[in-house]
Write a protein that binds this DNA or RNA. Structure first.
Length: 645
DNA sequence: ATACACGTTGTTAGT
DNA sequence: TACTAACAACGTGTA
């Protein structure tokens, strides 16, 4: 019987340590093993990826390739510049492949892509071997053990996980690797269409990575930032398994830190060093295995003499949240990434809603400007010019370094959505997708839903203040001063609310609080400037909470008929408190046509114990005089739940 | 049916 | 400094 000729296809597993799929490939005892990466135009042109994450990916690939060559001087990471769907069938033939091996990926695009590839392999008579390795538990299994439903709470994950069984111990890295076979590519390259290039703005030169299948030198090398035409990275954080394992060693060496870690007690304002591990980008690219991390930590915790922290706040608990989001994504597919058509995401009539392609029910990547003011809020938030130093420092750190502390993400996400700007969480998620070096679709989407109180979490009245919250961690504002040099001379008293500083003090500090933040111009004569706050936070917060309360009572989810067909507007047109402002200023613009008012309202959810309060009666004065069905009566008024106790 | 505890990470004013 | 209660109040799971 001929020995197997195997392609190992690297994707989100850029490592040699603890790779169950790579182990499976080696267990085939192949005659030759091709270790490849397919340069997928979906990632190059269609996913939002900024220069910092590009750099991290290239770092990981170069490091892996070097490690491979150390084990076998004839081998490396063979990077081939074509989409996997067209490339792999040609490789099967050219290289006489018998087996294709890769790690399972449950991301919406990835699972679609892999189904197609498996189909093509079957046609070519190539056996496919898939192993789970990206998460602690196989997301599909997790969902199955959760009664087939998406994992929406950490207790569900723990219950389902315990049914699956113990988390596997890490597999050591291989000590040797088989030779690759002949690497001649005697076929034409299918060049992708660049348009639409969602990453055009990331480039300052032409994208040119598809010049030849095996690269400009024919050596299958990893492309450079220059080949991709990308602007240079600005992040200090670098990728690669070598760095990841060293970082893990350093963390594990500190037993107290490892065993007593409690996420809510780590300071989002710490920057030298940061308060958390910075391992998230390595988990994303697979330059570190989550099981390697889990067991290295768990062994320290088991041997720890003092009182160790527990999930979910402990270090291993962080991995459970990751698994929770992967489970939700695996179950919900593309709809997980948006409100529209999402059965588990609440509908809130945010400003700047996504435009929907009604033929696919998917968001298009662009959005509708229903409010010029909200759009200005959004731009100022994104560019770090809101006039709230805590928010601006975080957003500037994010743009520059591609990483901010988890609680910092909470602060800016709450501020953009339910606790400030009342802007759609999908806008924020897109910015994070572009800028984060650790962007993990499942976790990013899940966390934005969490913070916007549209899924996973619901206590919208718990709202982060851009002044009180950072004070708790950094009384002197050192974090703000690092990322906003204009405020470097401001005293602690005014550092989170510089607009309160008297003009004389502002002049003494060399920076005037002036302007609406519409440009990055920050000089006026001999003074620097820093923008005025874009709104009064306490009153804006109050409006948002009222808007959330109203939307919660109406109780629509993303897959509700009224959301899908646009008739949700009827429910919000009267008495809708909050920044959306009722009939005169319709909230959101999710669909292409106005509501007809003739739709069935049978699915409407009315709280059983709803009653009209004094406050509600006051705000519910009908302005437009719409004719209403009887069942909508209670909704037209501001209803509230009966107070318990 | 109803009550109650709980939920990774709020804020403010008190002790 | 470290805790607590009140604030006004969400959904889910369990008893």
């Amino acid at each position: 019987m001929p020995k197997p000729r195997v392609i190992y296809w690297f994707r989100t597993d850029l490592r040699l340590h603890d790779s169950p799929a790579l182990r499976a490939a080696l267990d085939l005892k192949p005659e030759c093993l091709y270790l490849i990466w397919t340069w997928d135009p979906h990632y190059v042109y269609r996913a939002r990826v900024g220069p910092n994450r590009w750099q991290f990916l290239l770092d990981c690939q170069n490091d892996l390739s070097k490690s491979i060559t150390k084990l076998n001087s004839k081998s490396k990471l063979f990077l081939i510049r074509e989409a996997p769907q067209t490339l792999l069938p040609k490789l099967f033939k050219a290289w006489k492949i018998t087996h294709l091996v890769f790690e399972k990926d449950t991301d919406a695009y990835a699972s679609e892509r892999d189904s197609k590839v498996m189909e093509l392999a079957k046609e070519a008579g190539v056996e496919v071997v898939v192993r789970m390795g990206r998460t602690l538990y196989d997301p599909d299994e997790l969902v199955k053990e959760n009664k087939g439903k998406p994992t929406m709470s950490i207790t569900q994950v723990q219950a389902a996980g315990s049914k699956i069984g113990d988390i596997a111990r890490p597999i050591p890295a291989p000590k040797s690797l088989p030779d690759p076979g002949d690497t001649t590519l005697d076929f034409e390259q299918d060049k992708p269409t660049q348009d639409p290039d969602i990453n055009a703005k990331q480039r300052d030169a032409d994208e040119g990575s598809y010049n030849a299948l095996s690269g400009p030198n024919g050596d299958f090398a990893v492309p450079t930032m220059e080949e991709l035409g990308l602007k240079p990275a600005t992040t200090p954080h670098r990728g690669g398994e070598t760095i990841a394992l060293k970082m893990l060693d350093d963390i594990i060496a500190n037993e107290d830190y490892t065993a007593t870690f409690e996420k809510p007690k780590t300071a989002p304002t710490a920057f030298a060093p940061q308060a958390t591990t910075l391992l998230s980008p390595h988990l994303h690219f697979g330059s570190l295995s989550c099981r390697e991390f889990y067991w290295r930590v768990q062994d320290v915790v088991s041997a720890y003499k003092g009182k160790a922290s527990q999930p979910p706040t402990s270090l291993t608990g962080q991995l459970l949240f990751r698994d929770m989001y992967f489970g939700a994504q695996a179950s919900l597919g593309y709809s997980f990434g948006q409100t529209y058509n999402n059965s588990h995401c609440r509908f809130i009539p945010w400003h700047l809603p996504s435009t929907i392609d009604t033929s696919t029910s998917l968001i298009t990547g662009s959005y509708q400007i229903d409010s010029a003011q909200a759009n200005q809020y959004f731009i100022r938030w994104r560019e770090g010019r809101t006039g709230f130093p805590w928010i601006d420092a975080l957003m500037r750190q994010l743009k520059l370094e591609g990483w901010i502390h988890h609680l910092g993400r909470h602060a800016v996400a709450c501020f953009l959505t339910r606790g400030g700007c009342y802007v759609d969480w999908e806008r924020g998620a897109e910015v994070f997708e572009e800028w984060l070096i650790d962007h993990e679709a499942a976790c990013n989407i899940g966390n934005w839903q969490w913070l916007s109180c549209t899924a996973f979490y619901s206590m919208f009245y718990r709202c982060y203040s851009p002044i009180a919250f950072p004070k708790k961690w950094d009384k002197n504002g050192l974090f703000v001063k690092r990322y906003i040099p204009e405020l470097a001379n401001y005293p602690a008293k005014y550092i989170y609310e510089p607009w309160k500083a008297p003009i004389a003090d502002q002049k003494k500090c060399g920076t005037l609080v002036k302007g609406d933040g519409s440009t990055s111009e920050d000089r006026e004569g001999k003074f620097k400037t820093y923008p005025k706050p874009m709104f009064d936070f306490p009153s804006q917060r109050e409006k948002c909470i009222q808007g959330m309360k109203n939307a919660y009572h109406i109780g629509l989810y993303g897959n509700d008929k009224k959301v899908l067909d646009g008739t949700w507007r009827e429910l919000f047109s009267d008495g809708a408190e909050g920044p959306t402002g009722g009939v005169d200023e319709l909230p959101g613009a999710m669909v292409r046509e106005e509501a007809t008012g003739e739709e069935d309202i049978g699915e409407q959810k009315v709280p059983k114990d709803a009653e009209v309060t004094k406050k509600g009666a006051k705000t519910s004065t009908t302005k437009a005089g719409h004719k209403r069905d009887a069942s909508q009566g209670t909704l037209d008024n501001m209803v509230t739940r009966k107070k318990k106790k």
